[in-house]
Design a binder for these strands. Structure first.
Lengths: 162, 162
DNA sequence: TCTTAACTTCACAAGATTCTGAAAAAAGCG
DNA sequence: CGCTTTTTTCAGAATCTTGTGAAGTTAAGA
């Protein structure tokens, strides 16, 4: 339930954090980044400090540091320096983080590059070459479609959350 | 007997297999399934036997067995019994395997389920709940779009490879 | 039915990851 | 500047993963 006062049920938060993190792990994400990310997603402000993360997840500052570095590299969180403090805050941009999922362009592009090289070295007219060419065409098609899809999403979002 | 056609350079095949597998690994796939899959993708017939896979990849039958089981579960390859032999052949369907990439529905659905539970337990009107609701809406939107996108792909493919 | 090829399962060793504690580095503040 | 708080780095221990060898299971052919 929605609570005010001393706040939210820490047990409920923890259940969500661990459950969602587990799903992310299953999809290939490392455990600690997944937990840190889920904790940020479940925070009311959308930001937490390193100390809060370490405290809530019961891990060392070192682990938080490593996880946050990874998440920042993936553009899933950003770092903000709090004015008037030496603390750093880590933020999840609710309307942007999941766009990084579709920005796995880098991955599609690397797959495409590896396939292109395979086609070239095995020969485009060999059976294997043709099979790989079809796969490559698929990746290129998807790559083009995703931008349009995200544009439609933003319109759709603006209707849902005006 | 499966003949590697004339002019097919085993070293070139191996380079592709290891390179493409490395990209798959980077995207979260286990190493052995990735190598087995890449080997199938690069095979001329689109099929290989367990013995051929073990031989080409220099791994034990046990490793092949585990990798193939995983790939079959993910519907990335299918198993065929060779008539008149006790061998099994493993096949990649060139025009279908990559559709499994978009069929990670299961993953989207599980993420959505975890988010839905989080929204319910933290409260849909809390800031965290609203953030999660937007993410959930995104996943639901994507889920709907993907089917349409794949339909467009099939049309596109039929133009490219009539 | 028996034999034997082919695949699968399982315990374990080798290897890779991941997190911690401790020390170093960076950065605000007087 | 020097003190203090916060973050980062790094070596190493604990934990997981992964592939192997060997035994076990299944199924084709005689």
């Amino acid at each position: 339930m929605t609570e005010s006062g001393p706040g939210r049920d820490p047990a409920a938060v923890s259940r969500f954090v661990e459950g969602f993190a587990a799903q992310l792990v299953e999809a290939g994400m490392q455990r600690m980044p997944a937990r840190v990310f889920a904790a940020l997603l479940a925070s009311d402000a959308g930001t937490l400090t390193a100390a809060e993360l370490g405290d809530q997840l019961k891990v060392s500052p070192a682990a938080v540091s490593g996880a946050v570095r990874y998440l920042a590299q993936q553009h899933m969180v950003s770092r903000e320096r709090e004015p008037g403090s030496r603390r750093e805050r880590y933020r999840v941009h609710s309307d942007q983080w999941y766009e990084t999922l579709t920005n796995r362009e880098s991955i599609l592009k690397r797959w495409a590059a590896a396939l292109g090289e395979g086609i070239r070295s095995l020969g485009p007219e060999t059976p294997a070459g043709r099979r790989m060419a079809e796969t490559l065409a698929f990746f290129e098609f998807i790559d083009g479609e995703i931008a349009a899809m995200m544009e439609r999403w933003r319109e759709h979002r603006d209707e849902l959350f005006p």
